[in-house]
Design a protein around this nucleic acid. Sequence first.
DNA 1: AAGGCAGCCTGTAAGC
DNA 2: TGCTTACAGGCTGCCT
Length: 271
Amino acid sequence: MPELPEVETVTSQLNKKIVPNQLIKSVAILRKRNIRKGANQFTDIVNRQIIDVFRRGKYIIIKLDQGMNIVVHLRMTGQLLYEKKDAKPDKYVRAILYVSSGDILFRDIRTFGTIDYLSDTDLENELKKIGIEPLSQLFDQERLLEICKKKKAPIKQVLLNQKYIAGIGNIYASEILFESLVDPQKKAEDITRDEARKIVDYTKRILKKAIKEKGCSDNTYRDIYNQKGNFNNFLKVYRKNGEKCIKCRKATVIRIVQGGRSTFMCPHCQK
DNA sequence: AAGGCAGCCTGTAAGC
DNA sequence: TGCTTACAGGCTGCCT
């Protein structure tokens, strides 16, 4: 689940809670495999000061002093939960950061989530690999056309590819293309100028609205206070297969598979 | 270079 | 009720 709006929600809440000047008191690693790079130095973080918490793509970055960073990716079912102190972890909690004011629990049912411990340089190199922030001013019609140029992959796959655009996942990709009236199967290189303008416009509008609603909790996503987001109440096409399209009120929303993932669309509206 | 697909895990819902 | 199957919002690595 967690895509840009959900990760943004968690990041900004955590930022308010633990920035600045809080110390990492200790750390508990309950499942080693969730800790990837830098696992062996992970205990160094004790007594480091937290300088900042920010988001890039779907990564949550907790910036520490001495040029080190804790980098969290929630993947499918990851959660970061903030609790006052002495939280009692259930069996899905994979790691705990004990900070001055409370405990941060990394909870993840499917265990795909990751935590890396990276120097500023290593972090910079990791972040270079991911594409443009869709909410930045630099993401515009021209930029999207540039990204789509000479790509034979379907536009949906391009929107999902973090190398090109950072933060859009499966839910928002379906929603964006539905509002833009673009067929998700259309080759990226065939996207017109007008379609590119609409895709950019709806990407920004939908992501901003979803952030305002604290994300989308179809399933396991929760914010740091263990609360659900409200954006699923605003979904127009995602998982609406079998229902009447709300735009044309004639055709039925269908589910197709692209790259092994579900796409939801109205075959009448999206050409 | 780029696309397709299995794999990482566990839970839930649907179908029989 | 219980068993089996399909599916789940992400990403990597290997193969073609």
